[in-house]
């Protein structure tokens, strides 16, 4: 059991976390400690509970057991410290609005109830769009953006939250090279500013290149820590089972 004083130093502390949909456990007794200022990848096979872990941290799924602390406090007290990039496929991009309007949603949490976004929010949103090289597309309808551009709009929306911790669900999923480059730049930038980023990631090959910490997940936390220590053949084999070699082969 981590004390509150210790947990307060860590962006995210997950203890004995168990999440189940109906009877089936999706996460089982997971302990994770995300170090301050780290750039952490969550990897694991399909159905390993990667997205569920992020959603549990954000209070979006009911947890069966365990606790989650954000700088030593429950998430509802720390919302303003956490930015979120959901999977691009979870929304309908035919919604009638433009990129800037979506990015401004990142400010809604600060505005609170009833208040309408104004010039300050628009400026923040434009700045966020610039950071992902999408400022030229601010007024573009979101259904006319490519998949990669939509992903960058989602990233910009999280940046507009001006958070200390960022949780991103598969931001690299099906994006073009330009977008991949833009996302990596943003990640490195955030880290340079001392912020913490946790990313659900699919591509094992790029883990050592993009990240410094890793969590290997397969319902249970197989291993976590710095990439040098945790991202080993042995741990990967445990996380992915016998399919690991085939998987590495296919990704290559």
């Amino acid at each position: 059991m981590v004390t509150i004083e210790e947990a307060a130093k860590h962006p995210i502390t997950v203890e004995d976390l168990t999440v189940a949909y109906k009877e089936e456990p999706v996460l089982w007794d997971v302990d994770v400690n995300v170090p301050d200022g780290s750039l952490m990848a969550i990897v694991g096979p399909n159905g390993a509970g990667k997205s569920t872990l992020i959603k549990a941290i954000l209070g979006l799924v009911e947890i069966s057991a365990g606790r989650i602390l954000v700088y030593g406090k429950p998430y509802p007290q720390q919302r303003h410290l956490v930015g979120y990039v959901p999977q691009r496929g979870t929304v309908d991009w035919d919604f009638p609005t433009n990129a800037l309007d979506i990015v401004m949603m990142g400010r809604y949490g600060y505005l609170g109830w009833f208040k309408r976004p104004g010039k300050a929010e628009r400026d923040k949103a434009m700045h966020a769009l610039e950071q992902v090289n999408m400022d030229a597309f601010a007024k573009r309808q979101i259904n006319q953006l490519s998949g990669g551009q939509q992903q960058r709009v989602f990233l910009a929306r999280a940046l507009a939250q001006d958070a200390q911790i960022y949780l991103m669900d598969e931001p690299f999923q099906g994006v073009d090279a330009t977008t991949e480059r833009a996302i990596i730049d943003v990640l490195k930038n955030l880290q340079a500013q001392g912020r913490t980023v946790v990313v659900v990631h699919h591509d094992l090959e790029t883990v050592p290149e993009y990240f410094d910490h890793v969590l290997l997940l397969n319902v249970r936390a197989v291993a976590s820590g710095s990439v040098d220590h945790a991202f080993t053949q042995q741990n990967l084999r445990t996380a992915y089972g016998g399919r690991m070699d085939a998987l590495l082969e296919r990704e290559r």
Partner: peptide, 18 residues
């Protein structure tokens, strides 16, 4: 603003505390 947000992305709205 709230209706727009939940209509587009209800998960994000929940994460923001709405």
């Amino acid at each position: 603003k709230e209706f727009k947000l939940i209509s587009f992305d209800s998960g994000y709205a929940a994460a923001l505390g709405f």
